[in-house]
Design a binder for these strands. Structure first.
Lengths: 157, 157
DNA sequence: TATTTATTTAGATTTAATCCAAATAGAGTT
DNA sequence: AACTCTATTTGGATTAAATCTAAATAAATA
């Protein structure tokens, strides 16, 4: 029996509502989902125990904090077997916020967040220096037009 | 005077701690930052009013919810002036979770989340059909090795 | 239908959020 | 340095929510 079957629409509605604003009181969620607040607790406990809901994070406008530049990096490795080693090195660079193993040309696809162009240059330098990295392609983000959670209850295919 | 100067280390520490777990009580944050909980409230209110902290969202393991495939899309437009129109169309596709205007080859860089390969195919189809889109390159995410918030207090450059 | 098991619910209790007036600290002025 | 004005922080009082538990309900099984 698949784990997915343990999740019903009540769970999904709770997740959807809390995903819009994780600080919404369970009492309020309860009203919208037409169950008691105790049930919301029990369901969230279950979802956390199952590892489906891992944590809650803030949605921060980094540009207002002086972090004005974000960029995606397509990273080419000398040998693809170096993936794990390079990921470990990238983890040591605080400006790296994500790193993926993807299909396509790149061996690693990563995202970095920097204060300004000079900071970006320094970070790119330190990434270029990582052993095993051949070269990188930089996609600088000029505008973030869409950034939202999955919508479970919209017109999905 | 720059807005950034209104933000001090207390603000950054509060943001950092809440970014790890947005549900941490302000009383607990207060202890760690060595101020009163009232101050944490005042600071968070300020950060929210300034638009620096926009909301809190859940960190969800989508694969455990049956959304097993995520992919980055490099989208080529027929004319780059079509950007705004295409973004609006992409917003209507619920599986599209982000969309960026970036430097580099692609006109739009997007991310989608799908249940399985068949769902992915359907979503790619509907994206291909969007007027103004020439062609797309798909980078399927096989592994997410890094996914974390910015670290303000680590060894930054 | 009876019995077991799981889920939901409604209080009771604990804990945190919110509000506010007083205290403190800081900036600017003479 | 003393004074004034302003902004920030604080602690306590109030309101609201989280958490816990035992009872009620519902669902599953025999």
């Amino acid at each position: 029996m698949d784990k997915i079957l343990d999740i019903d629409n009540i769970d999904l509605k709770i997740i959807s509502l809390l995903n819009e604003d994780a600080k919404t009181p369970y009492t309020e969620i309860a009203k919208k989902v037409f169950v008691s607040s105790g049930t919301v607790h029990v369901r969230m406990k279950k979802l956390e125990d199952m590892g489906i809901v891992k944590s809650a994070t803030l949605n921060i406008d980094f540009s207002k904090l002086g972090y004005d530049i974000s960029a995606f990096l397509g990273i080419y490795l000398e040998k693809s077997s170096l993936y794990d080693n390079v990921i470990e090195k990238l983890k040591e660079i605080p400006e790296v916020v994500s790193g993926y193993y993807t299909t396509g040309n790149y061996s690693i696809f990563a995202k970095i967040i920097c204060r300004d162009t000079n900071h970006l240059r320094l970070v790119l330098d330190s990434i270029q220096k990582v052993e095993g990295i051949d070269r990188t392609e930089t996609l600088i983000v000029l505008e973030e037009s869409i950034n939202r959670p999955i919508q479970f209850f919209d017109k999905e295919k």
